[in-house]
């Protein structure tokens, strides 16, 4: 679709962004801005939806009824976040069906971290602490994003994510203070989830395909590397507090930078998982496809019933 716009539309759009005001659904916006947002918001929504699977893997095995209730509530929140985000994306003229088709065909991405398996109860703690922790760092920044519906969805999501992060940290804290086996379980989970969590912030700024334009339009407010550093700084302190060791021999406080230094990220692994070759990519997509295909008759029945009801109402009125 070409930009058909009044002559001063672009400058008005740019002035709005410069003034830190929000772009709203009915405002004129460049096609690229719209497409960039659709990509980012739908990817975010898909991540929430696929993200139900690794944690859902432990609902049936949660080690206490309290933990089971918390985990159910959390996974339910994630699905709710998926709903707000699909709705935010729909304000940009794309339908949920189109977005879902793109997810199921493999065209759309979702957070690569969910392509790793949850192997022990401690993984549920690690996901809350690290994955939701990384997500919050990113999402707090997105509360100031220039597109109004996205910014407002983020404010609400951040509140719930902060509860998720705390419950994950509390699981890890409990395990770290528990038996030797429990502590080993927590350390093993940290070892496996640490580097994928750092990868959640995306490539280095210099290599990021979308960063520059997104920053200019204030879709993104801080760069991948800035956000990653913030996450490392806060998490290093938390790990030390509960007596777990971050699996990075180069992690060290740098007085002159006022930040933690950390070791190089394995971008080959990042690219491999992104390309569909992580341990669970196939299983995650297969699970989503199966749910969608198995549910087709249910969705058809709902529509058929609604049609019958309408026809009956019309018949009765006639």
């Amino acid at each position: 679709m070409a930009d058909t716009s009044p002559p001063d539309a672009l400058s008005r759009f740019e002035r709005t962004i410069a003034a830190e005001e929000k772009i709203e659904p009915r405002d004129w916006m460049p096609d690229k801005y719209r497409l960039n947002l659709v990509r980012q918001i739908s990817q975010h929504a898909h991540s929430e939806v696929v993200g139900q699977l690794p944690e859902g893997n432990w609902i049936a095995r949660a080690p206490s009824l309290r933990r089971k209730a918390i985990l159910l509530a959390k996974v339910q929140d994630e699905a709710g976040h998926g709903l707000y985000l699909y709705s935010a994306a729909e304000t940009l003229g794309v339908s949920r069906e189109e977005m879902l088709d793109d997810l199921l065909s493999g065209k759309a991405k979702y957070a690569s971290i969910f392509n790793y398996p949850t192997l022990s109860w401690a993984d549920v703690g690690a996901i809350g602490w690290l994955v939701d922790g990384a997500a919050i760092v990113n999402q707090i920044s997105l509360c100031r994003t220039s597109y109004g519906p996205y910014a407002r969805a983020m404010v609400r999501i951040c509140k719930e994510e902060s509860f998720h992060q705390r419950q994950g940290f509390e699981i890890m804290q409990t395990l770290a203070a528990g038996s030797a086996e429990q502590k080993a379980m927590a350390q093993d989970a940290l070892n496996r989830w640490w580097w994928p969590s750092l990868m959640m912030f995306g490539p280095h700024d210099a290599e990021s395909a979308h960063t520059q334009q997104s920053m200019q339009w204030k879709i993104k407010r801080q760069s991948n590397d800035e956000l990653r550093q913030k996450f490392v700084d806060q998490t290093a302190v938390q790990a030390a507090h509960i007596g777990l060791v971050i699996p990075d021999p180069l992690l060290k406080w740098n007085e002159s930078r006022g930040h933690y230094d950390f070791g190089p990220i394995d971008w080959d692994e990042f690219n491999r998982v992104l390309a569909g070759h992580g341990p669970c990519n196939r299983a995650r997509l297969a699970a989503r496809r199966k749910a969608h295909e198995d549910g087709e008759w249910v969705r058809d029945a709902m529509l058929a019933h609604a049609d019958k009801q309408r026809a009956r109402a019309t018949g009765a009125a006639a």
């Binding site: 139900q52 198995d294 249910v298 969705r299």
Partner: peptide, 16 residues
């Protein structure tokens, strides 16, 4: 057990 596997997103939420 339906969590994440139901016919559509609203039902994932309702089941959970």
């Amino acid at each position: 057990e339906w969590c994440g596997h139901s016919p559509f997103l609203e039902e994932d939420i309702a089941m959970a």
